Amino acid sequence: MVVSSVFKDKEFIPKKYTCEGQDVNPELVISNIPDGAKTIAIICDDPDAPIGTFVHWVLWNYPVNGPIVNIPEALPKVEKLQNGAMQGYNDFGKVGYNGPCPPKGHGVHHYHFKIYAVNSLIELKGKVTKKELEKALSGRILAQTEIVGLYERK
């Protein structure tokens, strides 16, 4: 299960977490993590983008240190975090999280924060994207969940 302190499932994401605000990731709290999970991976994408699914965040190897994992707000936009977690490249061509930024007047977009409980560390090198992470996750996912946020630029 995943919840956010700043938006509820299928509700609007505050402007702070978008390209019209501070463009920082929202806090996510993950619970009901299965035994045997060593790390958390996150993929956030927008299937409503005019060019097809647009990736906003790729993160993996976030350590599981108990029954609840708290992903804090505003993680640094670096490949390797202090706790060993790794961030890949989003479709803006940047490392880390870049928030909702749909074309003005394009209507409401849905941002899927997909959370994966993973049974091992994942070794990936280079300019890692969603595609490489999804391939590496194959056969290692113990559980998955998601929270969907909405955003529209008028």
Rank of each mutant, 00 (worst) to 15 (best):
K131N: 13
G126D: 09
A117T: 05
H109Y: 06
G139N: 05
R140W: 01
V118P: 01
Y89N: 09
E79M: 11
L137T: 13
L133A: 01
N119Q: 10
L124R: 03
V148F: 06
V148N: 05
K125G: 07
P67R: 08
E152Q: 15
R140Q: 13
N70T: 15
K104N: 08
P72N: 02
Y116L: 02
Y97G: 02
G99A: 06
N70V: 15
K80T: 12
P72I: 09
V69M: 07
K131L: 12
L133E: 05
K94N: 15
K104E: 14
E123L: 04
L121G: 07
E134T: 10
R153G: 01
K104L: 07
A117R: 05
K127S: 14
L133K: 01
D91R: 02
G149I: 07
E134W: 01
T129R: 15
G93V: 09
L81D: 08
P72H: 10
V118I: 13
G139P: 01
H110G: 05
E79G: 00
A136L: 11
E146W: 03
L124Y: 07
K127D: 14
K127C: 00
V108P: 02
A74G: 08
V95C: 09
F92K: 10
A85Q: 04
Y97T: 05
A85H: 03
V69I: 12
Y151W: 15
N98T: 14
P100A: 15
A136I: 12
S120I: 00
I122G: 02
K114R: 15
L137C: 13
V118S: 04
L137I: 13
K94C: 05
T145Y: 03
V118R: 00
P72W: 09
K131S: 08
S138H: 12
I141Y: 11
P100C: 07
E73S: 14
L150A: 06
A74W: 06
K77W: 02
V78N: 03
R140A: 04
I147D: 02
I141E: 08
P100T: 08
D91C: 06
G126A: 11
E132Y: 03
I141Q: 13
C101P: 08
V128N: 08
I71V: 14
H110C: 04
Y116Q: 04
V108L: 09
E79C: 00
R153H: 14
I147S: 07
L121Q: 13
K104T: 12
K135M: 03
F113Y: 09
V128C: 09
V128P: 04
K131R: 15
L75Y: 07
S120G: 08
